[in-house]
């Protein structure tokens, strides 16, 4: 554990809490892509099947929180606050993300076993899981500030992991090429959003895309 990973994990946790609180407090999931949230639930489920392999208390606890929170979010969007779900704008074709991620996991993995292929699938899937949400923001041309904070925290987490991987490579000689390449792809997808967040949201303006 190093500072980059710890702050990355906390940023990830913060993102999940921000989203749950936003939906709960406003009793609405307007502007949130249910499809991205389903993809995240799939990501955590397929990645944390290794839960019985004990690494640390911290690790186990965080995994349980991420799985539980992702299902709670999906429940709030598709059941409890279903009436507020903006499905007309949530039209990204997720099969174009799920199928290629799965095929790639079958082809490029560390070990051809069920658990390992599913872990690899979850890494590829996570790198693109935010696309339905970003697509929704670009389609409506705007995002509430709280949604922007959520996206910023979520995007920062993988960027911080990249620093963690550089640190681990130099100090422990440890590296995982699959995670690194997917993590870079994931972070790059947020770059456009990061730019808008820094130039607009942090200056008190609403995140609005030029018409």
């Amino acid at each position: 554990m190093n500072i980059f990973r710890l702050v990355g994990d906390l940023s990830h946790l913060l993102a999940i809490i921000i989203l749950l609180l936003k939906i709960w407090k406003t009793r609405s999931c307007a502007g949130i892509s249910g499809k991205s949230q389903i993809l995240f639930a799939i990501v955590y489920t397929s990645r944390y099947l290794d839960l019985p392999n004990f690494v640390s208390m911290y690790n186990t606890l965080m995994k349980i929180v991420f799985i539980a929170a992702s299902y709670a979010t999906v429940y709030l969007i598709y059941m409890k606050f279903k009436a507020t779900y903006d499905h007309n704008h949530d039209t990204f074709r997720v099969e174009f993300l799920v199928l290629p991620s799965f095929v790639l996991a079958l082809l490029i993995n560390h070990d051809f076993t069920v658990l390992e292929v599913l872990w690899t699938f979850s890494i590829y899937m996570e790198s693109v899981a935010i696309l339905p949400q970003l697509f929704m923001v670009s389609k409506t041309g705007e995002a509430e500030s709280i949604t922007s904070h959520y996206l910023f925290a979520l995007g920062s987490y993988r960027a911080l992991y990249i620093l963690n991987w550089i640190y681990r490579y130099t100090t422990e000689d440890h590296y995982d090429l699959i995670a690194i390449v997917a993590g870079i792809v994931q972070t790059v997808l947020y770059c456009d959003f990061f730019y808008l967040y820094i130039t607009k949201v942090l200056k008190g303006k609403k995140l609005q895309l030029p018409a």
């Binding site: 990973r5 290794d50 690494v55 690790n59 965080m62 991420f66 560390h110 070990d111 872990w119 963690n164």
Partner: peptide, 10 residues
């Protein structure tokens, strides 16, 4: 030989 890849990150 059992080769298990360990993933210690989240």
């Amino acid at each position: 030989i059992e080769s298990v890849v360990t993933h210690d990150e989240l």
